[in-house]
Design a protein around this nucleic acid. Sequence first.
RNA 1: GUCCGGUUCGUCUAGGGGUUAGGACACCGCCCUUUCACGGCGGCAACACGGGUUCAAAUCCCGUACCGGAUACCA
Length: 497
Amino acid sequence: MTVRVRFAPSPTGYLHIGSARTALFNYLYARHVGGKFLLRVEDTDLARSTEESIRSILDGLAWLELGHDEEIVFQSDNADKHRATAKKLLAEGKAYRDFTPKAAQSDANVKDAIKDRARANQGEKNMRDNPYRSLSAEEGDARAAAGEPFAIRLKVAETGKSSFEDGVYGLQERDYAETEDLVLLRSDGHPLYNLAVVCDDIEMQISHVIRGQDHLTNTHKQVLIYEALGIIPPTFAHLPLIMAPNKGKLSKRKHGEVVSMTTYRDAGFLAAAFRNFLALLGWSAGEEKEIYTLAELVEKFSLDGIHRSNAIFNFTENDPRRWTDDKAQWMNAEYIRTMPLDELLPFVRPELKAAKLYRDEYEDDDKAWFENTINLIRQRFFTLKDFSNQGRAYFSEDYDFDPAAIEKNLAKFPDLRSWLPELAERFEVMDSFTEPEIEEVVKAFTEEKGTKLGIIMNGARTLLTGVAVGPSMLSVFETLGKDRSILRLRSQIAWNV
RNA sequence: GUCCGGUUCGUCUAGGGGUUAGGACACCGCCCUUUCACGGCGGCAACACGGGUUCAAAUCCCGUACCGGAUACCA
């Protein structure tokens, strides 16, 4: 049997980090076993679903390079089939019409209202006491024909339990007494989530359902529907949840942009790095290696390596350095400085182009210079954004000076104001401008002035790059070249800031 | 409330009867160095608690605590 898995987001927001990981795991599983990875948009909640959200989710998946097979299925397109299925179960006596008027929305928070209701019912509640459960078919038909509104509920057996073998959590059992006769079709004719999911999974011939652990109880309900339909359920595997630093729910409302996939794309993360980070949140290959290419993840992935405990996505609100998980930031930096240069370049070019720092010559005449420079400066960069921010001085004459750098490297040494232009004079007469010669000249100059090499180098760094950190200054001089180095050493701009 | 899960350094995790409980991130220190967010070396730091089983428990069993999820004519 072919393995077919699906990622089924409901389009009520952007691609959440937890959903992204669910998509990733589905993708990895499918690719690992040579199966299909399908996409289904669960847009049955017409009120909350938006076109924009669908686009944002697809953007997120595309960024992560989780390409899906076959056409995207829109759940709302299948509503008629869902209704037909509910009617079928009704006709077979496996479901019944519930004429109880729809309860008015409580003014309390939905979750709290549910909790309160459950607590109030506690001990007393018999899940099978719906008065309409045993209504005769004739009377039901008559009342329906008379136009009385009704919901269709699944008739859950009095005794017994639902069970399934979870790919991650093992055998799961739930007594029928814990499960209400669930509503399949609302009184306004709209199919409910559990029915829609089961119908679509059957229709799409899904073999493995891999989703968040928050669906564990839904799965029992869905198993019941499969049984009523006489269809063998797929294999289920539930994933541990990704929590906020306080172990609470990670949500847009509370935590903002950190949970959105597009945030990382826009912040200059490499999809490969973020994917790698995500893969290790709740899964491990059981080895100490932690940098994996997509192909390696596909090769190593298995349900056995998925944990049963939730993971915390660690970040500190209001701390610019810790705005997102440290490890994700480290991993991105690691990718930027160690991945093959030709794989990095395709990401650097658009970044520079967007900042108007790219020139066509970087493709031909200055290709070697460009690649060497990127290779030189990437060693201390964390995101793609750094190429256009901190790296700006390498590609443009119009760059800013970091006040902290001026303070630390220039202001403290007023002599540099005349020394650096003077150093430019020494450069002026040089025939060859490469590291060894530059070093010789700068050292001689330093000795002559009776100062320390660091003072000269750091002053020059500030003037030439605008920042206090970067590669070896000898490399910087050489990369920038004789003319630009001289020009910048003579410039008084930084001194007047 | 009830049901279902979970619990190894601050975080991500390895290990699943005998380990100095390993790695990574973060943090701290030292080294390299003209700076540094690179690199090298080192340090700090964990088996939730209580009972059992066993020669031996972080590992198996039970209980407790705590955390999470679920409870809907939402998805």
